[in-house]
Design a protein around this nucleic acid. Structure first.
Length: 491
RNA sequence: CGGGGUGUAGCGCAGCCCGGUUAGCGCACCUGGUUUGGGACCAGGGGGUCCCAGGUUCGAAUCCUGGUACCCCGACCA
């Protein structure tokens, strides 16, 4: 088989790049750091969106939409927030172009300068809290639980397709509550939604935990995260949910009258996942042949490839294929029947492997004669010949099995690449030799965290929620620690 | 922002060092035919402001100057 991808063992990042391009997921655009998401890639994103959107609605959220532009002054209202985002903002200063008086092309009309510059949103807390101020007077107006699907812009120095782009697509939930407890509960509910989505739909096991103060969202009191492990041993932050306390309510003066007639500031949360999830999906499962998609997110779960010499043969195959397609369709399985005649079967096999289609059916004259069909699994590349009788049942069971198997494989990989260490030497050795998640004691200080980051490039991915208390000593400072945290090198 | 690299057909590249016919090659594309159970083959065909601007020269894809775009590595990354 001809190789079209750089093998993972040779260069993981090159492999990733090749795969995104060759599987037709996305490509670089004419605009620095911005990508074009191609139809096949976007179809996967749409599946993610549809499922997440459903889960958001099931947990009581509504969709809304807020402007892409935010007045500059809004950013100065919350000190930590502006500090976190100031360095990567795109700014609109003018609103009109004119013909170049010196010759060709157009120039910005200097007359058309904005009174106040507009920031292209890097995130929407400020504009949303400015809006919420008008929506909230009483506890009866609460909670407000809005989500928006949007694009945001962060002017990153260095970008990578899906993992970090200057513009990206995401959803951001912004909720307002009358009590601290309710806001915290909301924050936890949403990180649970994300974890469930990652595991059950993407087939990516994640660890839930708190971010340390230095890794927190700008303006948050607590940031919950889900952390996934990629095949190269690096961690990927895959979703975050923030408890914002009353910071934004105070910054935008959003108060409500309680049942008892007292005035108080509103409690806030925000939470988001982005097209970065596409990166997680790709890196968690795919191999040197291409993408491996979990059935629940594949644009189509099954592709049928006909094998024939004569047109009469194709006609017979078409009848069988269309029949299978409609039976599977009735079970909610999307099938692509590729009877295009400009490619040979071998080419199609390779192509659909590259694109990660979970199940491939090949039907030829031999199968027509025997009443069979060849079933190939993308995840483990096995093939078998199956009777056409009851094929719809067989496939739909197989898809469930593949979904589960992909998750288990990733879970196993994570287990093999998760280690507990007690000394700094061992810590460095593990990071250099193997990578992965490293559980170690930490004294809770920012100094130690920073020192470890500077010396090893490993960061504290999170303070895991379900980690039992355990007395120990910090591997660097020797100070006491009550619990292990997770370190890793990360994307 | 620092270091490196690359801009030549839709894509991937050669040619440039050492200036000189009509700028090549592979893939893709179009036509015809033979093929089709793991990336087919033959024949024919179409497609180029050689990134931009200026300079040197009888002559520039090639040399010089400036610009610009993108990619990679690093720093940065809520």
């Amino acid at each position: 088989m001809a190789k079209v991808l750089t093998p993972r063992s040779e260069s993981y990042s090159q492999w990733y790049n090749d795969l995104v391009l060759k599987a037709d997921l996305a490509e670089n655009s004419a605009v620095r750091g911005c990508m074009v998401i191609k139809p096949y890639g976007y179809a996967i994103w749409e599946k993610m969106q549809a499922q997440l959107d459903k889960m958001f609605k099931e947990t009581g959220h509504e969709n809304a939409y807020f402007p892409i532009f935010i007045p500059k002054s809004f950013f100065s209202k919350e000190a930590d927030h502006v500090e976190g985002f100031a360095k990567e903002c795109a700014v609109v200063t003018h609103y009109r172009l004119m013909n170049n008086p010196d010759g060709d092309g157009v120039v910005v009309d200097p007359e058309a300068k904005l009174e106040e510059e507009l920031i292209v949103r890097p995130t929407s807390e400020t504009i949303i809290w400015n809006t919420y101020k008008n929506w909230i007077q009483s506890y009866r107006d609460l909670p407000i639980k809005c989500n928006q699907w949007a694009n945001v812009v962060r002017w990153e120095m260095r970008t990578r397709l899906f993992l970090r782009t200057a513009e990206f697509l995401w959803q951001e939930g912004h909720t307002a509550h009358s009590t601290k407890a309710e806001a915290i509960e909301e924050t936890e509910t949403m990180i649970n939604v994300y974890a469930k989505f990652a595991e059950e739909f993407m087939g990516v096991p994640v660890i839930q935990g708190f971010k340390t103060a230095s890794e927190r969202f700008a303006g948050a009191l607590e940031t919950y995260t889900i952390e996934a492990l990629m095949q190269d041993g690096k961690a990927l932050q895959s979703g975050t949910s923030h408890f914002l306390g009353q910071n934004f309510a105070k910054a935008f003066d959003v108060k409500f009258a309680s049942k008892e007639g007292k005035e108080d500031y509103v409690w806030a949360t925000s939470w988001g996942v982005s097209t970065r999830l596409m990166g997680a999906l790709i890196m968690a499962h795919s191999d040197d042949h291409g993408l491996v998609l979990p059935p629940k997110l594949a644009p189509y779960q099954v592709v049928i490839v006909p094998i024939y010499r004569k047109d009469e043969e194709l006609e017979k195959i078409k009848v069988v294929a269309e029949n299978i397609k409609s039976k599977l369709g009735a079970k909610g399985v999307d099938v692509k029947f590729d009877f295009s005649d400009n490619r040979k079967p071998g080419w199609k096999f390779a192509q659909y492997e590259l694109k990660g289609v979970p199940v491939r059916l090949a039907i030829g004259p031999r199968d027509i004669e025997n009443g069979t069909v060849e079933v190939a699994r993308r995840d483990n590349l096995t093939k078998e010949t199956v009777s056409i009788e009851g094929i719809d049942e067989y496939i739909s069971t197989l898809l469930d099995e593949i979904q589960e198997s992909i998750y288990n494989k990733a879970l196993e990989f994570r287990a093999e690449n998760t280690r507990s260490v007690d000394t700094y030497d061992e810590f460095k050795k593990v990071l250099d030799d193997k990578g992965g998640f490293v559980f170690a004691h930490w004294d809770g200080t920012e100094e130690t965290e920073k020192r470890i980051k500077d010396e090893t490039k490993a960061t504290i991915r999170c303070i895991p929620l379900d980690q039992p208390d355990e007395d120990g000593i910090d591997m660097v400072s020797g100070k006491p620690s009550k619990k292990r945290v997770i370190f890793a090198r990360a994307y």
